Amino acid sequence: MKQPAAKSSLRRLCPNINKEDGLETVLEIPIPEEMFSTMGNNVALRWQNMLTWMKAQTEDKLATPTVASRLNELRFLLYLVGCPLIPLQVQLGHSVHRPVRDCSIEASTAKYIVQQYIAATGGQPALNAVDSMCVTGQIKISASDFYHTGQSIEVKKTSEEMGGFVLWQKDPDLWCLEVVLSGCKVCCGSNGKVSWRHSSNQQTPVQRGAPRPLRRFLQGLDPRATANLFLDAACIGEKIINDEECFILKLETSPAIRDAQSGPNFEIIHHTIWGYFSQRSGLLVQFEDCRLHSMRTKDDNDIFWQTSLESVIEDYKYVDGINVSHSGKTRVTVSRYGEQSANHKKELEERWKIEEVDFNIWGLNAESFLPPSNLEKT
């Protein structure tokens, strides 16, 4: 007998505030019940407060310093933690087998570990049968203020921000993510030729770049992309992660890829990725990456930013024969150097929970991943 579905902790419908017997509206992005419950003493007041907040997201309101500062902080959290990209063009099509001949022992060992991971996540036939995917989930993000790295103080996080997201993907490299965090909406995507990212604040221009995968895919959602990413890695040792003995696979971004992802005032100096694969289960239990880039200011000064992300991947469950992670936590450390010789650091944390995963979405095509109409103007 099929087990009854667990009650979702995401709210998906909005009642008709102006007409009591009117049809409910389906929310484009579900919001966590916990977030909704903090917006008033009763359901009607909560929806009214939410609608009022959304109506305030107009250009005249956004011009006020308080609202603008708040949205800038939320966008910073979303860009850095909620929807970061990986500066590698991962093959998202069918998994490929690389020959182990003429490989170093570290590279051939990594290929063997990846094959064990493919088996642990459902096997090659199951992964190759996936054509598209839709994921809904919720996130909670907290962050500290910037502080001097030399200060020996206890870093306290600010209040926790809550939100929800919807992620669409179609094989091989089409994807779109929409995420709302405390009312601030950010969209990002890739149509296979260009990737983009922009927020609900229309005063913020659309950011564009070469096609890149979303980091969230590699946090247990897309085993095929993860396998293809680490096929070119090297096994550098072993480490115990949360009482699990793990193999460590390491991958360095090549100079050619770094140059392709850099811009006239922006240079990626290095980007290194590590994957920790359980020796017992074969699953990816931790994913880390560290990148260093420099930015040239208007005064021709260089500011260096180093971002380290560490994701613990948990709660694997089978969906249509594929083993997918349903929760996890990411810790982020952002360091800034070179600005008036002052070094600053900021610490962030994201916790996520996947509510629903569906594969092979009927009717999803390339037109579902068109970039914003004003992308060419940026």
Rank of each mutant, 00 (worst) to 15 (best):
M1C: 10
P4R: 11
P15F: 11
P15H: 12
I17S: 13
N18L: 15
K19E: 00
D21T: 08
E24C: 08
V26D: 07
E28H: 10
I29D: 01
P30Q: 10
P32W: 05
M35D: 08
F36G: 01
N41R: 14
N41A: 14
N42I: 03
L45P: 03
R46G: 02
L51M: 13
Q57M: 10
S69V: 04
S69A: 15
L71E: 03
L71K: 15
L74F: 13
R75H: 04
F76P: 00
C83Q: 07
V90I: 13
L92Y: 13
G93F: 09
S95N: 12
S95K: 11
V100D: 12
I105N: 13
S108D: 12
T109M: 08
A110G: 07
V114A: 04
A120S: 14
G123A: 03
Q124N: 07
N128R: 09
V130M: 09
V130D: 02
S132Y: 13
D145P: 01
F146A: 10
Y147F: 15
T149E: 02
I153N: 14
E154R: 15
V155I: 10
K156H: 13
K156R: 13
W168R: 14
D171Y: 11
D173W: 05
D173H: 12
V180Y: 06
G183P: 02
G183I: 00
S190T: 06
G192H: 07
S199P: 00
S200A: 11
S200M: 11
N201S: 12
Q202T: 01
Q203C: 08
Q207N: 04
R208Y: 13
R208I: 04
G209Q: 06
A210D: 05
L214G: 02
R224Y: 08
L229G: 07
D232T: 15
A234T: 15
E238Q: 15
N242L: 02
D243F: 12
E245G: 00
C246M: 09
C246W: 13
C246Y: 12
S254R: 14
P255C: 07
I257F: 03
G263N: 08
F266N: 09
H270G: 07
H271D: 09
W274K: 15
E288D: 10
R291S: 00
S294Y: 07
T297S: 09
D299F: 11
S311V: 01
D315M: 02
D320I: 11
S325H: 14
H326Y: 15
S327H: 14
V332Q: 05
V332E: 04
V334I: 14
G338C: 00
G338A: 04
E339N: 15
E339D: 14
S341C: 04
S341F: 09
A342L: 07
E347Y: 08
L348T: 01
R351C: 02
R351E: 01
W352P: 00
I354K: 11
V357A: 09
N365M: 05
L370A: 11
P372V: 00
P372Y: 10
N374S: 08
